[in-house]
Design a binder for these strands. Structure first.
Length: 287
DNA sequence: GCCCAGGGTGTTT
DNA sequence: AAACACCATGGG
């Protein structure tokens, strides 16, 4: 089924960017692949993104949508080649990873979606995280613009607002499959819905203060806070360490800790994550 | 059937 | 501060 509305086409000014690599890189959980297109919803709009040698086509978006939403969401204006040189200068062994991940951008996701998604992510695997979030969106999200075009129905629903989730009982979160994270979700959504967390301030606050605010939420620890800050609040200096990154820092990237605290540490982290994803055999499970 | 996952909390050393 | 048990669930 064709996506109605306009189809916005961007010519190939961004030779490095890969929509597929970016949207399937583990920083977001809401994009599905159908017939080579990345299909999903952000900021209340469902689109399908296609990329070939001529550039990017965003089905379901017009020029205004691109300027007001997708350009920023996909972080199209940042010079990732320059960042790649900077982080490789700090840790030369990143050269390989930066090569594999040259097309990956750090998405500018909605703060609440990033925070909530990574609360769900703890001690969990990506396919199951996707399933839980999909059910949350289908049950408690609003239909997006173009929702009727979605191939997977849940892809056409917006991420539920904190207000919508604050009305959901802990028991219901468990029925959806959240497991022991259910109590964290009720707690976090109630506090955010109540206005306790100032998202705009977190975007520009001194980084340790931003961390402190997020860490005050029960269910948000260091790793979840770093992910929320990096993917939802535009704080590229944040460096999430999950079990995979930890193994990488203990084996092939022992010098990687030098990145922590640098301006683009989060981008370097994403490069390492992409490298691990492409060489899983090199990072043997050894917990 | 088993092991593990983009970990955090609470408790014990 | 560092180590440890415990947490629910289902994908692989």
């Amino acid at each position: 089924m064709a996506v109605h509305n306009c189809n916005y086409h961007i010519t190939a000014v961004h030779k490095q960017f890969s929509a597929a690599d970016t949207l399937t890189s583990g920083q977001c959980f809401r994009w599905s692949k159908f017939d080579g297109r990345l299909c999903g919803t952000a900021f209340g709009r469902y689109v399908e993104i296609e990329q070939d040698d001529d550039g990017l086509t965003i089905y379901g978006a017009d020029a205004d949508d691109y300027e007001s939403v997708w350009r920023n969401y996909l972080d199209m204006d940042r010079d990732y080649e320059a960042i790649s040189r900077i982080v490789t200068g700090i840790e030369p062994r990143l050269a390989d990873s930066a090569q594999y991940a040259a097309g990956v951008h750090i998405l500018a996701q909605e703060p609440w979606e990033a925070l909530c998604s990574f609360v769900i992510s703890q001690n969990n695997n990506i396919p199951r995280i996707r399933g839980i979030i999909s059910r949350l969106c289908l049950n408690y999200g609003e239909p997006a613009a173009n929702a009727e075009s979605a191939r997977d129905k849940a892809d056409g629903y917006a991420f539920p607002t904190p207000q919508a989730l604050s009305d959901v009982s802990e028991e219901t979160f468990k029925e959806i499959g959240c497991g022991y994270r259910a109590s964290y979700l009720t707690e976090v959504s109630r506090r955010v819905a109540h206005g306790d967390i100032d998202f705009e301030y977190i975007k520009k606050a001194p980084i340790d203060e931003a961390r402190k605010i997020l860490l005050s939420l029960k269910g948000v620890g260091p790793k979840v806070a770093e992910c929320a800050l990096l993917y939802g609040f535009g704080r590229l200096e944040c460096f999430p360490v999950d079990v995979w990154i930890r193994r990488a820092l203990e084996t092939e990237f022992t010098g990687g800790t030098a990145l922590i605290g640098s301006q683009y540490a989060g981008v370097a982290q994403q490069y390492i994550f992409e490298y691990i994803r492409r060489h899983p055999e090199k990072f043997v499970k050894n917990k």
